[in-house]
Every structure is written in C-alpha cells, then in structure tokens.
Nucleic acid binder design. Structure first.
Lengths: 343, 343
DNA sequence: TGAGGTCAGGAAAACCTTTTCCTTGCAACA
DNA sequence: TGTTGCAAGGAAAAGGTTTTCCTGACCTCA
C-alpha cells in the first residue's frame, strides 16, 4: 500500500509556475479574461495542457455563488416513469455544464430530510422533485426560498410551487377521440384505482370525448381496478362473458391493463381490432410491442417533460420566478390494436 | 424581480459572531473537536441551530481532500438493469454521507469524455461505470490512477480494473439443476444472441448442469435469438410443432423469452408446469408475475450487486487496491411455472 | 518565587480560484 | 522634460471551513 496512493492533481499554482507567471495571470489566461499578451496566454494554456490541469470546480463554486449542480430527489424508487424524465433532464442540464445529484427517498420523510440536508450543504442551485403521482405531496422543506424547486410528475400542496405534469385529461381525450373517430360507439374505460389523480383526470377526458362525439355513457363501462394485466383480463371477462351487448372498444388506463385485456379478448376469439379496438396508456414498449396485436397507446412524452423541467430550472436559477401547474400535452401512437391498416 | 432574490445562507462566521467566539472555536464546537468548555460548545450549537446554519460542503471539501461525492457513469441509457444497481448503491453510499453524480453517456465516447471532465473537475472521490454487458468496454480514461474506478454490470478491457458482475454461469446452473432435480430430462435452452458474454456463460452453465445430472445434450435444444417474447413464441413453435419428441422443460435466457414461450405453450394446449416446466432469467416482476402461470426465474440480485459496489468503492477510496472480476451469486425464485406446489 | 502543567480559546495558515485594484514600463504628446 | 495614457501582469482579498500552533490564565509543586 505504501505510497503508491492516488497522486495529487495539478493546481493553477503549478500551471502558473510552469508558465512563469503569477497565479492571477494564469487564471486570466485560462478564462480568457484580463489584458494579456497572446503569447503569454498561449504559454499558460500549453502549461495547463501539459500538466493535465483541470480547475477545481469546488474552489470555483466557492468564489462564484453557483455550484453548477442541482439535486434530484425521487420518491418512488425511481421507477419506470422517473427514468426517462431524469435522463432527459440530465441531458438538458449537462449542456449547460450543470451536474445532478441523484437521491432516492422512497416515501420516507426522514430519509428525505437527510438527503435534503446533504444537498443544501452541497449548495445545489436548484432542486427537482419527482415521484409517483398519487396525490399532492407536502412541499419540500427548503429553508426560506433559498433555491428554486420544481416538481415533476409529482404535485406539491403549495400554490407557490411549480409543478410539471403530463396532461392526463387531454391524453385521454386523444385516445378516445381516436376511437370515436374510427367509428367506435361502445367504448369502455378500464383503469386503475381512483386514489390516483391521473385516474380521475383521464376519466373526465374519456367522458368529455364521448360527449363531444355525441355518444352516451354506458352503465358499467367505467371500471376501476389495479394497474395489472390480471385486472385487464378480469375486466374483459366481466364486460363480455354472458353479455348480449358488448363494447366495440376499450380505452385502458395503462398498457398493462390494455395488454391483459387484449390477451383475454384473443382467448375469447374476439378479433382485435376488427371487433374490438384497444388503446392503452403510457406507450411502454415492453407492453405495447409484445402484445398481439401491438397496442395503440397514449404517450405522456416523459422525455419532453424532463427537458422542459431542465429549461424551467435553468430559468429559475437565472432568477425567474415561476409557479403553478403546467401540463404537457400527450400524444397518441397508433398501432394495430386500434387500426388494422397499421403494420 | 427586484431584490426578493434567494437570500444568503448563514456561514460559520455568523454563527461564531452570534455565539461570541472566534470562527475557529465555532468550527471545533460544531465538529466536536479541540478543547472547549461544554457550555461554550452548547452555545455555539444553539447559535448554529437558530441561524439554520449548514456547513458549506464545498469549502469543507476544499480543505479536506475528499469531496464526499462519487460519479456514476452509465452507458446504456440507464435501463431496467442499471436502476436497481444504482438505487442500492445510492442507498449504501448515502449512509456514509457520500452523494452521487449521475451521468448518462449512451455509448457516445465524446459525451463520455465530456462527463468525465466535468466529474474530475468536481473532484469526485471515485467513479462507478455501469452499462449493458455486451462485451468488454475500453477502460475509462481517468488520468494516471487519480481515483478508484469500479465497473458494475460492465466489464473493462483492463486487467487492473475491478469489475463486479452477476455469476451468469452459476445462475444458469441453479436454474437447470432445479429442473433436473425435479425430474426433467429433456431441457431446452432458449436464449438471446451470442454476442452477449452472458449468453455464452449461461450456456456453459446449462451444459455443465446437464452433464452433472447425467443427461445428454439434445441436438437442436440450444437456440439463440432475440431477447423478446416473440422469439420465445417462435422458438416454442419450432421445438414443438410436428415433433414426435418434445422438451419437458425450457430454460430461458430472460423472462421475456420465458413469457413468450409460456404463452405459446398454453396456446398449444401444453400444460405448464405439468407437461413442460419453464424457468426464466432476471426475475423481472413485470414479466414473472403477469405470466400464466407465474414464472420461476433466476434473480441476479442486482440490488446486492449495487450494495457490493458501494462497499468496494468505499474501501478503495480508503486506499485499498482491488482488481479483477468478482462475480456475485444469483438466486432462484421458484414459482408455478416449474413447480405446481407453489402458490 | 518561579518552573512547569493544564485548560480554554484565539490567530492564522491552508485548501484553490477569481477578481479587483495596483504597479511597472514604455510610448506619445505638449 | 514632464505629463498622460495604455499595455501587461502582479499582489492580495475574498469565498467558507478546518487545523495547527500559540497565548493567557490558572493551578501545583518545589
């Protein structure tokens, strides 16, 4: 073990020495500041390169008042939804030289506080909170407006907060309008538990889209259950078995339900999409592409949501004050389960 | 916008002033160092609390030579596999007060270099590289042993590097032994493309387990294809349709293949597990629990892998030198697809 | 009375950069 | 010749914290 330890890094003092200038001058040369002869500037830059000098951003941050880091606090052990968001966010911020601290506090307020303390100590320039959207969460306890906070795919119980969400209502409209527009008249909605705000919003979208198409709501065609394939199969059983009149389309609350429903239909010998069209929600390829036939689905554009969060965060760090709920439009991806012409 | 900007944070100087001591003394009081009267110590601590003081960890890091941060560089846009690993790692490191910078460089060397530069500037204490394991990746270019690097779920083409991987060979043995142990004689292996090292390792495990049980390898029972449900269905078709002798068990390279296979068997009226047992790989609940019947599967213990990575990284930061390939055992989760007695 | 010891806390260097303000040298101008 | 003006670069403060070393004050023992 001796002293073959990891060696020390070159500092600007080493660079200055090697270039034969003062450290102030070296700094100016490297940052393209001050009044220097081009020759001097180049000499410093060469010295820096030769030494593999890389400025210590801790020291820089200490001086400037920006750390060029933000925190991402994820409740809901960064699942399938948080991932694309965070990935897009990271990509967006990296372009501005901002790095992200990743923290996970699975609905444990104590761990959340601990993480928050740590992040505050690291002087992050902003904070992004994400997590499952069951209901409004208590706002993060950052001391007295000390930094911008954005909630993404998560809603804070605080009118001053900025929350970025997918437009569940509009997404549902989109899905159902696609079905009404292709001639479906008896559209059922099989979805998750009503404890999710998204469920009630999508339900509203469903109803409004039916109304807009002049279609009646049919008794028993709105079904709440779990977010699982098993529930999709079960719902199909209760909607179809022994019924004289059956749906000609299913709008499902997520792709797992949609897939379960599709499987159940196929096993009953009901043709999809000929007899019944199916549209899911989430556009999760693992489900939509593996289903037979592949599923049409509403896409929440989570990557766009993450990018938007990045932009908003940058604006707020620059001083802008933003608040309220902003909803990003969903889009519809049509596949064979609702349109036989798709390949 | 005026001056309702985000206010300044209290520094240790404010704390010292309020407690009527020098800043050195304040520091000692807060860090439980030096020789101080208990009364003084408590006065400082009280002052700190009243001001909501939180030490600036940038300044601390500047002084100590540890930043208490590590970088996570993920090629493979942190997919399903990287997630549990990173989550467990984060949890493990958080206990030691170490935060992680999350970077994503989807197989783009330029972005990787850019991220690396940024991380080096931030003086991370260590680096963890993760990503899809197709083949050995070129080692990360950290200048001259400047910090510990660990590859997890990824293998570097460098004998000096430490690589942490699941024991694919042992995992396959485990799965196949379970099948031979429950009386299966004709076990096929349906798996992914041979470009993955994991595929060849698992294949070896499969063969050795057969040999250990005194079973012959059967011509055509090892099948390479894609990692998809569709391939699982297709493989079953070619193994069963029009064949006089068929397998009595399928060991699949991942859960998607296993699920596709199970679906195909059911649709042919082949009873699972009565006539054919199925075992998957990955233990991905989205697949294993939704399949009918639920799938037995080999679990790579990715969370444990992440924890292990955290421990190793901490050791290496403390000065220990580690290298070589370390493989973590897999475990088997038995469900109905291979054992009718399971619920 | 003085030498030495302990206790409590202060002063200042160190960590690495950036930036503001100064100094020096030299040319141009009256 | 003396005054300006400018170019080039140095000195030092600042940013927040930790740590080493130092100073007094008080006590003990000879």
């Amino acid at each position: 073990m001796d002293d073959d330890r990891y060696p020390l890094r070159a500092t600007i003092r080493d660079v200055a020495e090697r270039a034969g200038v003062s450290i102030g001058t070296a700094s100016k040369a490297l940052n393209d500041n001050g009044r220097l002869k081009t020759e001097t500037r180049e000499r410093v830059i060469a010295a820096a390169r030769e030494l593999g000098f890389r400025p210590n951003s801790l020291a820089q941050s200490l001086h400037r008042t920006r750390s060029m880091t933000v925190g991402v606090l994820s409740t809901d052990s960064f699942g399938r939804f948080a991932f694309p968001i965070i990935e897009a966010l990271e990509e967006r911020l990296a372009k501005h030289g901002i790095a992200i601290f990743m923290c996970n506090a699975t609905d444990d307020p104590a761990r959340e506080k601990q993480h928050l303390d740590q992040l505050l100590g690291k002087r992050i320039d902003g904070l992004l909170v994400t997590g499952r959207r069951l209901d409004k969460r208590p706002p993060v306890a950052v001391p007295g407006q000390s930094m911008p906070v954005i909630y993404v795919f998560s809603q804070a119980d605080d009118p001053e907060a900025l929350c970025l969400l997918p437009d569940d209502y509009g997404g549902a409209m989109l899905g159902v309008q696609h079905l009404t527009g292709t001639g479906r008249k008896r559209i059922a909605h099989i979805t998750g538990p009503e404890t999710f705000e998204a469920v009630t919003l999508r339900h509203r979208g469903y109803r409004d889209a039916l109304a807009a198409a002049g279609l009646p709501e049919i008794e028993g065609y709105y079904r709440n259950g779990k977010w699982s394939e098993a529930w999709g199969r079960e719902a199909v059983a209760s909607l179809f078995d022994g019924k004289a009149e059956v749906p000609d389309a299913l709008f499902c609350g997520n792709d797992q339900i949609a897939r379960g429903a599709t499987d159940a239909l196929r096993e009953r010998g009901v043709a999809v999409p000929a007899a019944v069209a199916v549209v899911g929600f989430d556009n999760w390829d693992v489900m939509t592409l593996a289903a037979r036939p592949p599923l049409s689905s509403v896409d929440m554009n989570l990557r766009e949501l993450g990018q938007l969060a990045g932009e908003r965060l940058i604006s707020m760090i620059a001083g802008e004050r933003l608040k309220g709920v902003e909803r990003l439009p969903c889009s519809l991806v049509v596949r064979q389960s609702s349109d036989p012409k798709q390949s």
